Computed example of a mutant assay.
Amino acid sequence: MSCRLRTEQLHIGYGKRTIVMVAHDLNHAALYAGHAIAIRQGRIARQGPPAAVTTPGMLREMSGVEADVR
């Protein structure tokens, strides 16, 4: 699915209802989610506001990636 189509679909329901979204694209998750849950090996590793969940420490812990998060 194209990035444009995904974004259009998310805008349709945004603010009107609860949407459960499974995403590996952290940019989309951070942009649209009011609450994020990071799952590792079937268990909740972190949860909270997207900015609190998508941190350099989480990326390192979850996937072994060293990255800046902005």
Results as ranks from 00 to 15, higher is better:
M21D: 10
G48I: 01
L10G: 02
L26Y: 12
E66T: 10
T18Y: 05
Y32D: 05
G15P: 04
G64V: 03
I44W: 09
Y32T: 00
S63M: 13
L5D: 13
P50H: 08
R70I: 06
G57V: 03
T18K: 10
A29E: 02
H11V: 01
V53I: 03
A29D: 05
R43T: 14
C3K: 11
A45H: 15
G34W: 02
E66S: 14
A29G: 10
R70G: 05
E8N: 11
A38F: 02
Q9V: 09
S63K: 08
T55L: 07
G13F: 04
G34L: 04
G15N: 05
A30E: 13
G15S: 00
I19H: 00
L26G: 12
L5H: 13
A67V: 08
E8R: 08
Q9F: 08
V65R: 02
E61F: 01
P49M: 14
C3N: 12
G13W: 03
H24A: 11
R46K: 13
P49D: 15
R6E: 10
V69R: 06
Q9E: 12
L5E: 13
V53Q: 02
R4Q: 14
R6K: 13
R43D: 08
V69D: 13
L10A: 01
T7A: 08
H35L: 05
I37Y: 07
L59G: 07
L31G: 03
R60S: 15
H24D: 00
G15Q: 00
T7W: 01
Y32W: 10
P50T: 04
A36W: 01
I19T: 05
D68W: 01
R70Y: 09
A67L: 07
K16I: 01
A33P: 03
H28W: 04
C3Y: 11
Q9R: 09
A33G: 13
A45S: 14
I39A: 13
H35C: 07
P49Q: 15
G34F: 03
T55S: 06
A29P: 03
G13A: 14
L31M: 08
M58W: 11
H24K: 07
A38I: 01
I19K: 00
L31F: 07
Q47C: 04
G48P: 09
V20L: 15
L10F: 02
A51C: 05
N27P: 09
I19P: 00
A45M: 14
S2W: 06
A23C: 10
H11T: 04
G64S: 11
H11C: 04
M1Y: 07
R46A: 14
